[in-house]
Design a protein around this nucleic acid. Structure first.
Length: 557
RNA sequence: AGCCUGAUGGUGUAAUGGUAGCACAACUGGUUUUGGUCCAGUCAGUCGGGGUUCGAAUCCCUGUCGGGCUGCCA
């Protein structure tokens, strides 16, 4: 690790101190997803923090599924999460674990706590428990069942485990302090009765440990040195430590919290993402508008761009919201070097080059302007072509460098054309342009060395491939989708125009596009073949548009 | 209200008692067969008040503002 590459942060500083004090022989971190949804960009950040630290300190990285709530969890999610993790480049090697692997051990520890008088079976209903817990300002009061004898507790707990009670009838609680200022310490629930089918243990268990009773102990069992999690668990840390201190665990992990990653226009609540999918506001978890890893991948984001974004966002202790522009910058930055260049016309305007021969002429364009090794492709030019509608103006302002009546521009990679006539329909709409080309300009320059201000992209009107291009806007209209008027929900902030489908003409070479290969449609944006493409039907997703300082300038006027 | 926690340009993040730096955004200009990329530059910041100190973004006190916490979710 070098300082230049990895800026330090408070977690790394802390680890450095511990290492200097000889506290660890090896750093071990973990990523603990609950398999109840798909991974999203916020998870990519969390993974980057834990995996990055494990890598940089030459330590180990565990993947542990936190599967203590069978009602919400499923193997479908386990598989999807693994795939996303691999794609992101996080390698857990042999270290794949499940919290459910520790159910037996956790059960033994619970019984141990009962024997020591540190846990008891409570018959209070959920409502009663809430009442007894007190409030933020007032202490709670002891449950009438709090002082049951260990023998009775043990018997009851065994019966709970044997399925002799209904769901919700009883819970096992730690006996800590009902007046504790930290609500988490007011006799937290250790086990609850749940008769759902667990994705790994089936119907073996009728009771399941709570997150608090599972997480730290799992860390301890695995020898995790630094259990990195988000800020919301700060308040749970005293409890995390309490279990580590009160149970005969083999190791003492340390929980350190950091702020989640938030991005403008993006929601990262699993519950809300699930709602978008279930209510068909989007086309599934991998909809290119979704902030899920699957969605971003389909949209054309690369692991490198995501990683760069996470690193630039940094690790902090306060809630923050990153600008969407940074995310786009990171993608463009990565794609600029990777994307194969092609030409496609998104909003066609036909141009007839009147003095152009009837035969097709073939020109060559580099696959990448800065990398000759990537070769060239041939592009056919014919008498009739399409250009971009906004590359022509009948009455252009002074700073407009593109085509206009009497103006000359360069067709990229090909030749110069001059607009000679504008053809309109009855309503005055421009439907076609007439032009002439300079035979001397073949190749893109002329012997007289005259300059043309503009170079525009084009596609033959007769030798092209028709493709469907999908353009996406923000899924939400507000930078903070959760900001709503009284009585509304985030659903009301959905952008009705977040998906636009265009019929586009592309140069013939585009027919050979392969899945996962990034393209730049020159002067327009970065695109990638969509998973819905089939033989004869090419569908491209726009990953992100090119920066457009001209368009931006125009919008301001 | 109680407890926990935080506050540096528009945004994000460094500086750990010694010149407030970097990136994105915005804006200029240069290069360019992409109004892209690249290059150069400009704009702009320590929440308020007190204190300690030769010296404070940093330490102390205090105020203000923000986030989190009252699931048998994680």
């Amino acid at each position: 690790m070098t300082e230049e590459e990895k800026p330090s942060n408070f977690i790394r500083d802390f680890i450095d101190e511990e290492l200097a004090a000889g506290k660890h022989s090896q750093i071990v971190t973990r990523f603990p997803p609950e398999p109840n949804g798909y991974l999203h960009i916020g998870h990519a950040f969390a993974i980057g923090v834990s995996y990055g630290i494990a890598q940089d300190y030459k330590g180990k990285f565990h993947l542990r599924f936190d599967d203590t709530n069978p009602e919400k969890e499923d193997t479908e999610y386990v598989d999807a999460i693994k795939e996303d993790l691999r794609w992101l480049g996080a390698d857990w090697g042999e270290n794949l674990f499940f919290a459910s692997d520790y159910f037996e051990q956790l059960f033994d520890w619970a019984k141990g706590m009962i024997n020591e008088g540190k846990a008891y079976v409570d018959d209070l209903t959920p409502d009663e428990m809430r009442e007894y817990r007190g409030t933020l300002t007032e202490p709670g009061k002891n449950s009438p069942y709090r002082d049951r004898a260990p023998e009775e507790n043990l018997e009851l707990f065994e019966k709970m485990a044997a399925g002799e009670f209904d769901e919700g009838a009883k819970v096992l609680r730690a006996k800590i302090d009902m007046a504790h200022p930290n609500m988490n310490m007011r006799d937290p629930v250790l086990y609850r009765i749940l008769k759902a089918e667990h994705h790994r243990t089936g119907d073996k268990w009728k009771i399941y440990p709570s997150y608090d009773f599972t997480h730290g102990q799992s860390d301890a069992i695995e020898g995790i040195t630094h259990s990195l999690c988000s800020l919301e668990f700060e308040y749970h840390r005293p409890l995390y430590n309490w279990f580590i201190e009160n149970l005969p665990v083999p190791h003492t992990p340390r929980q350190i919290e950091f702020a989640r990653l938030n991005v403008e226009y993006i929601i990262t609540s699993k519950r809300k993402l699930l709602q978008l999918v279930n209510d068909n506001h989007v086309d599934g978890w991998d909809d290119p508008r979704m902030p899920t890893i699957a969605g971003l991948r389909r949209r054309g984001y690369t692991p490198e761009a995501l990683k760069e974004f996470c690193e630039r966002a940094g690790v902090a202790k306060r809630e923050r919201v990153n600008e969407y522009a940074l995310l786009e910058y990171c993608l463009r930055q990565d794609l600029e070097g990777k994307a194969t260049r092609r030409m496609a016309v998104l909003d066609p305007l036909k141009v007839v080059i009147e003095n152009f021969p009837e035969e097709t002429e073939w020109y060559e364009g580099p696959n990448h302007p800065a990398d000759e090794a990537r070769g060239k492709r041939k592009v056919p030019l014919t008498k009739e072509i399409y250009i971009e509608r906004d590359d022509f103006m009948e009455d252009p302002p002074r700073k407009f460098f593109r085509l206009g009546p009497g103006r000359e521009v360069r067709l990229r990679y090909a030749c110069y054309i001059t607009c000679t006539d504008v053809i309109k329909d009855d309503e005055g709409n421009i439907v076609e342009l007439r032009a002439t080309f300079d035979p001397e300009s073949r190749g893109g320059s002329t012997p007289d060395g005259r300059k043309v201000k503009g170079t525009i992209h084009w596609v033959s009107a007769t030798e092209n491939v028709e493709i469907e291009a999908r353009h996406y806007e923000q899924l939400f209209t507000k930078t903070n989708p959760n900001e709503v008027e009284e009585g509304q929900t985030f659903i009301d902030n959905l952008n009705p125009d977040s998906k636009n489908v265009l019929k586009v003409y592309g140069e013939p070479e585009l027919a050979n596009a392969t899945a996962g290969e990034p393209f730049q449609f020159e002067r327009k944006g970065y695109y990638i073949l969509d998973t819905e493409s089939e033989d004869g039907k090419l569908v491209f997703n726009r990953s992100v548009g090119l920066r457009d300082s001209w368009g931006k300038k125009q919008q301001k006027k």
